[in-house]
Amino acid sequence: MQSGSLRRVAVLLSFLAVIVFAAGCKKKTQVAPPAAAPTASQPTVSLNASPASIKAGDTATLAWTSTDATDLDIEPGVGKVSPQGSTPVTPSQSTTYTITATGPGGSATATASVSVEGAATTEQPSTAAQPSLNELFEQNVKDAFFDFNKSDIRGDAREALTKDAEFLRSYPQVKVTLEGHCDERGSTEYNIGLGERRAQAAKNYLISLGIPAGRMDTVSWGKERPFCSEHDESCWSQNRRAHFVLAH
């Protein structure tokens, strides 16, 4: 008798649990339409390129702001970024950058173009059926990130560099410049040295994977060209990196 009623309670409880769980699931999947629930606002995002026109080899700055976005991505070539900030870009040919802001309330995009004067316009990526080398490079080659005041290759950097090495093996004509970067907390002069050590560490790791040293140059930007400009660890961790640039 007692065990029977216990079982009944257990069944009831599990039934309740299923209902609650299902309701929970439903709430999660059902995102935008109903106006009743306190819905998240649609993200907004704006992107600005300055200057909009540069000479080949020069640098433009992309600056963006967003609201209600948790995830921002700039393509081609920049990748994940913080909700607002700026980054230098050095496109080798005229490029339209698209920023995609995603948040609980949906997603939004904005674009900004940088036109490059005197760029070799033999290949227009938009008209070509196959992705250009530039695009492939941007899609496949990932940067290596570092701990504060360190130039040791971390586990995640080892993974990224292993993939980078695959790409470099597939495209033996590609030469790269490895740019070392640091966060803002160290001193300016020492950081130029530290950034160089990071670039060298990434280069040496690639050499250990069989990539010839002659295909890789290193250069340090110290803390002069941060990818992200907030004064917190989320940004600092983005700024401590060895960044790959396709050399021409």
Binding site: G57, I192, V219, S220, W221, E224, A247
Partner: peptide, 13 residues
């Protein structure tokens, strides 16, 4: 001083 100047497509200090 330390200067970042471009040379053959690569800017280095």
């Amino acid at each position: 001083f330390t200067c970042y100047v471009p040379f053959r497509g690569v800017t280095s200090p």
